[in-house]
Each structure stands twice: as structure tokens, then as C-alpha cells.
Design a protein around this nucleic acid. Structure first.
Length: 635
RNA sequence: GCCGGAAUAGCUCAAUGGCAGAGCAACUGAUUUGUAAUCAGUAGGUUGCAGGUUCAAGUCCUGUUUUCGGCACCA
């Protein structure tokens, strides 16, 4: 007899051996039907895998988050089985579950798969799933596994990398067998609501030196409704795409004459300038000084900074009077020269110097993506010079500032600590270790959780990355705080300490939005183009009911609005009211004012907010005050 | 950069290898309108670019540029 305990604290005795399934059946047959896996002492296992020891058991049903991953993982196997049936020569790489579904990487040899082939594969999957073959787990030694997969070079490579003596598990459904850690669904009967979504190339083992395989993406759910909801969400995301909205709302454009170099249109320029003004205001209040450094500087400077050695392939260069120059990919070296202009005292610290600096980076052509990934962008940069013992406090101050700024936009984020790169880095390892520790200490001291991202630091120092999640559910790096003990050394920065001696300062590089361009792209999608009043390019649209009787009043109003710094447009076209209202709505203007006899007579305005039906009538001055009041809370 | 799609009017999209079209926007006129599209007319194009095949190319082929979905890289 063995003792099985359950999450609710109860326990029961069983005849050994048991399995998740037999336990579930002993409780209730209907429960057994809903179970897809089992957690034994916290370890996720196949439902029908027997065991014979006392254990804490948790049955995993369809609604458990772990169950979705299992479903998708099994869907990936089903995909592979279907592909093998249609393309017998296919060689398989890996096929994991991912956040929104699953994929399988496949080498199809000479065969080129297109999106048009997906329905046929999907159909084959459905047919195989309907056969409801049992999924069988078995264990094998390394030698056995190598023999089984001897015609699958990718699988043998994976098996070869496993440590000697490790038990290798295989899962079979029908005559299709895959190398897999598991667990899996007990059978394919659960696989009903899935869809193959897209196709892409992907490097074997994620390394661009390796061959590229064909990756088939799909998603799967337990219910038809969840699948439909997901597909609906994907459509909704497309509607929010900042490239589409940017075009429709006249915010920015891209030209094939300058791939990756965005053009700002008048409406986008207003949005951008509002955002920058806000940034300047907040930073002045936080005690920052502001500078601007040149776009282009002599190569010798980049040699000193280390960029020439470590960042050369991303830099644009040119020759001026027979001397080589580079367009800045970062603002820091220029900032260093500004620091060196003066002698600094410890009393000046922390010295916070900000710059909205336009940088250019030669990004890979395939990486370009609207405003999210461009070749020139404005970093909302700052360099903070200080003594080493000020680091922890300054980082805490920054985290507080970032938290405030993101909260203004209602954006959520998480922090990652990126450590020293394995190859390209400057300075000695002890200095790096100290810097990494300082960053971690600062976050720990204020209880901010963070994840470690090994080897992802900048070449000159470790960094904290602030990752924002956009409406497309993609994660974007925005804010960053980088601790640099190397550049001050390379530029021989000094300050005078309390004893009158020259000392070396440390420096933080930091950007809050990261890139103004990317941040605006995120905002466009976040707000779906319906910006808060303070950012909206046009805040108020004035619509006279009948130009003959109401236009004069409208013109009088917009003069008053403009005098009060409201951004306003008047629609004086000879169109029906409904037509003009529709347009104001599609342009997502926060306030639309309809002027008719009533308003002219009472000298009032009647407004309707974007997205609402309610109409409100106010005296002119009250309306102006209302619009002006819609500003971000202050820091 | 790599793999696979796509590129036609300002926008969204049609067009068996056989006369390049529609809707919206623009412009003109009529209509004078109270909360999401009034009616009629006009104009708009070297089908991304460069070659090729063909009696004939938006359509087929080659190259190239841009762009989309990923991969790799990254703010």
C-alpha cells in the first residue's frame, strides 16, 4: 500500500502501483475524463505512467495552465507526424510549445513549403487525431536512441549532446516516434481545436551559422471558443498595428529612399514634441542638465571609446578632409568630451546630464520594422557621473523615475539584468563583477524582482533592461540603465575628492523611453491610435451643423481655443453632419464639438468624447479648462 | 544578413498571357443638413525598378529595390 496525498490536504491509500489515471478514476470517472496529466511530488508526468511510492499528487485538468502547454506540445508532435506522412523525406529538428502555440522546425530538403500547403497539413493532422492512437512513452539508452534516429541527423545531434547514462525518453503515436522529455496527452483525442498559423525560416539551434530549417507555427486550445477568441485577438492586434495607424492618422511615413529612416509628418510631429516636452519637464525637475552632442565625430574618438573595435559593423562612416568620421551610434563618447571640458568636484555629484540624441545604427535589413526597429532614432539618454558608493542609491532613484514615467502611460514592464558578454567586452572581469553586483544589490534593496539575462550586457558594462509589453503581446526593450566603469577609464575622467585628490568617477548610461521612435510605436498600439488629450495631435474638432448659420461662431471659438494652446481643427466642408462626425471619430479625436443654433444662442459648446455617446454642454471657458486639465500627473 | 510571401490610382483591393477596373479619398456642381458615410459628374496609372520569353506580359522567367511573417541581431 502507498499513501497519496492531495492538494486539499486529504490523503488516500492505494494498492501499488498507481498512475494519475487510476487515482483520478478512483475519485470519479468524470474527473478522470478531464485529466490530461499529473503532478507527482511537483513533477509533471504522463497521466498513465505508473509509480509505486508515497507521493503528493496533483491532477492536471484542462483548465490548468500546464495543461495548455502539454496540449500544444502534443500538437507539435501531431504536426510532425502529419508532415512525415505527407513528406516522408522530412527530417525533424525541435518542436516545442511556446507562449501562444507551438512550432516544429523541419528540414524538407528540396521541398519549399508555402502558406498554401498549410491547410493540407492541417487536414492530415485532423485525420491522424481522429484515429485517436494511444501515445506511448518508453525509455531508451543513448545507444538505443541513436540507433532509432539514425536517419534523423538533427535528432542524433540532440541525443549526442545529452550526458552519458542519461535516460532518454521517446514518445510514439502509431508508427511515428519522437525524441521527447514529455509529458504528453494520453491520446490524440484532445487535439481538436488547433490551427497552423504561419511559416518561417529558422536557424537550427538558433545559430545563424547553421542551416535554416522550415518552421511551421500553429496554435491549439482545449475548446473551440478559446481558439476562436485567440484568432479574433490576432485580428484585433492587426487593427492596432502602428504602421497601419501611423499611415491612417498621418503620423509618420517611410520611403524606399531611406529604409529604416522614418519621416515625421505634421500630426506625428505634434505627438513627438509633446512627448519630448514632457520628458524635458520631468528631467529638469529631477535635476538633470541638458546637452546636445554632434551627430558625427572623428574616428579617433570611437577608437578611444572602443566602438571602433566592438561596434564597427553597425556604424555609418564617412570621410571629411581625408579624415575618417563616424555618425554616432551612441551618445556616450560625446558626453564624455563634455564632461572633460570642466574640472569636477565630488560636490557636483551625482552629475546628471541628459540628451535627446539622434543616433544612427546600421541594423540588418531584415530587422527593420516600422518604428519598432529603425536605423536612426532618438535616444532619451542621460549620463550620470558619481562615486562608486552612490551607485545603489542612484539606481533606486532611477527605478522610481521609470516607474513614474511608465505609469503615466499605464504600461507594464519587467526588469532584466544583463551581464557581461562572453566575447565582445572591454575592461577586466573583476570590475564587471562589481558592477553586476551593484545593479543586483540596488534592485534587491528595494525589493524589485528581476530576471537575469546572461551575456546580454553592452560591451562596456552590465545593464538593467526595462521590457514593456505591447498590445501585440511582444516584449520590447525600452528603458535601460547601464553601469559603466570602463569608459571613464578609457577617457581618463576625473573628479577632485574631499582630500583634493584626483579620482575616477563611475558612470551610469540610462534611457527611459529607450528610443522616442520605438516608444511612440508602442504608444500608438497601446492606445490603438486614440491618444490621451495631452498627446493627441488634434484635441478638438469643431463641426458646425450648418455653415450658413454656425460657421462664424465656430471660427470665433477656434480663435479662443488657439489662444489657449488647444490643438483644434474646424470642419467647414459642405457635408452632412453625420459624415463629418464619422470622420472625426475615425481620426480618433478626443473631443468633437457640434455647433448648432442652441450653442450659438447660449454661447456654449456641446462636446462628445471619442468612443462615447454622451453629449455634454458647457460654457466656453469651462470647456477650455477641461481640455487643459487633461495632462499627465506630475512627478 | 537568412528562409518564405507580397508590390496595380492618394488609400483598400479586382483583373484565364488578349482594351488596366471598383469602392473610398480628391476635384466640380447640386443639396443646407443636430451626432458614424446625400446625390451627380470629373480627373487620377510607364502595374516598384531593370532586363528577358511571347504576335501579345499586371500576369511567365531572371536580376534588383522595398515591404510583410519569422530566424539571427537589437533601443
Amino acid at each position: 500500500m502507498i499513501k497519496i496525498s492531495f492538494p486539499d490536504g486529504s490523503s488516500r491509500d492505494y494498492e501499488s502501483p498507481v498512475s494519475g489515471l487510476s487515482i483520478a478514476q478512483s475519485i470519479s470517472p468524470s474527473l478522470a475524463k478531464k485529466c490530461v496529466a499529473v503532478k507527482v511530488d511537483g513533477e509533471l508526468r504522463d497521466l498513465n505512467r505508473p509509480f509505486s511510492h508515497d507521493a503528493a499528487v496533483q491532477l492536471v485538468t484542462e483548465t490548468d495552465p500546464a495543461a495548455l502547454e502539454i496540449l500544444r506540445h502534443s500538437a507539435a508532435h501531431l504536426l510532425a507526424e502529419a508532415v512525415r506522412s505527407l513528406y516522408p523525406a522530412a527530417k525533424f529538428g525541435v518542436g516545442p510549445a511556446i507562449e501562444e502555440g507551438f512550432y516544429y522546425d523541419i528540414d524538407l530538403g528540396e521541398v519549399v513549403l508555402t502558406e498554401g500547403d498549410l491547410p493540407a497539413i492541417e487536414k492530415a493532422m485532423q485525420k491522424l487525431a481522429a484515429e485517436n492512437k494511444a501515445v506511448v512513452r518508453r525509455e531508451a539508452s543513448k545507444a538505443e536512441a541513436l540507433a532509432i534516429f539514425d536517419s534523423d541527423p538533427y535528432k542524433t545531434e540532440l541525443i549526442g549532446a545529452l550526458p552519458e547514462g542519461e535516460t532518454i525518453t521517446l514518445y510514439s503515436q502509431g508508427n511515428f516516434t519522437d525524441l521527447c522529455r514529455g509529458p504528453h496527452l494520453p491520446s490524440a483525442k484532445w487535439l481538436r481545436y488547433f490551427k497552423l498559423t504561419s511559416l518561417a525560416g529558422a536557424y537550427w539551434r538558433g545559430d545563424s551559422k547553421n542551416k535554416q530549417l522550415t518552421r511551421v507555427y500553429g496554435t491549439a486550445f482545449y475548446t473551440e471558443k478559446e481558439l476562436a477568441d485567440y484568432l479574433f485577438l490576432v485580428e484585433e492586434r492587426k487593427k492596432r498595428d502602428h504602421r497601419k495607424l501611423g499611415k491612417e492618422l498621418g503620423l509618420f511615413m517611410l520611403s524606399e529612399f531611406g529604409p529604416g529612416f522614418p519621416f515625421w509628418l505634421p500630426k506625428g510631429m505634434i505627438l513627438r514634441r509633446e512627448l519630448e516636452s514632457f520628458w524635458y519637464k520631468v528631467h529638469l525637475k529631477e535635476g538633470y542638465q541638458l546637452i546636445q552632442t554632434p551627430i558625427m565625430l572623428n574616428k579617433d574618438l570611437w577608437v578611444i571609446s572602443g566602438h571602433w573595435m566592438n561596434y564597427r559593423e553597425n556604424m555609418y562612416t564617412s570621410t571629411i578632409d581625408d579624415m575618417e568620421f563616424a555618425i554616432k551610434p551612441m551618445n556616450c563618447p560625446g558626453g564624455m568630451l563634455v564632461y572633460k571640458r570642466d574640472i569636477h568636484s565630488y560636490k557636483d555629484f551625482p552629475l546628471k546630464v541628459g540628451e535627446l540624441g539622434l543616433v544612427h545604427r546600421h541594423e540588418a535589413s531584415g530587422a527593420l520594422n516600422g518604428l519598432f526597429r529603425v536605423r536612426n532614432f532618438t535616444q532619451d539618454d542621460a549620463h550620470i557621473f558619481m562615486t562608486e558608493d552612490m551607485i545603489v542609491h542612484e539606481i533606486q532613484e532611477l527605478v522610481r523615475l521609470y516607474e513614474y514615467m511608465y505609469s503615466v502611460f499605464g504600461l507594464s514592464y519587467h526588469i532584466e539584468l544583463s551581464t557581461r558578454p562572453l566575447e565582445k567586452y572591454i575592461g577586466d572581469i573583476a570590475t564587471w563583477d562589481r558592477a553586476e553586483k551593484a545593479l543586483a544589490d540596488a534592485l534587491n534593496a528595494i525589493g524589485k524582482p528581476f530576471k537575469i539575462n546572461p551575456g546580454d550586457g553592452a560591451f562596456y558594462g552590465p545593464k538593467l533592461d526595462f521590457k514593456l509589453r505591447d498590445s501585440m503581446n511582444r516584449i520590447w526593450q525600452c528603458g535601460t540603465i547601464q553601469l559603466d566603469m570602463n569608459l571613464p577609464e578609457r577617457f581618463d575622467l576625473t573628479y577632485i575628492d574631499a582630500n583634493g585628490e584626483k579620482k575616477r568617477p563611475v558612470m551610469l548610461h540610462r534611457a527611459l523611453f529607450g528610443s522616442i521612435e520605438r516608444f511612440i510605436g508602442i504608444l500608438i498600439e497601446h492606445y490603438a491610435g486614440a491618444f490621451p488629450t495631452w498627446l493627441a495631435p488634434v484635441q478638438v474638432k469643431v463641426i458646425p451643423v450648418n455653415n450658413a448659420f454656425h460657421l462664424a461662431y465656430g471660427k470665433e471659438l477656434i480663435k479662443q481655443f488657439i489662444d489657449n494652446d488647444l490643438r483644434v481643427e474646424i470642419d467647414d466642408r459642405e457635408e452632412k453632419l453625420g459624415y463629418k462626425i464619422r470622420e472625426a471619430q475615425t481620426l480618433k479625436i478626443p473631443f468633437q464639438l457640434v455647433l448648432g443654433d442652441k450653442e450659438v444662442l447660449d454661447r456654449t459648446v456641446t462636446y462628445r468624447r471619442y468612443g462615447e455617446q454622451e453629449q455634454t454642454t458647457l460654457p466656453i471657458a469651462d470647456f477650455i479648462a477641461l481640455v487643459k486639465s487633461e495632462k499627465p500627473k506630475s512627478n
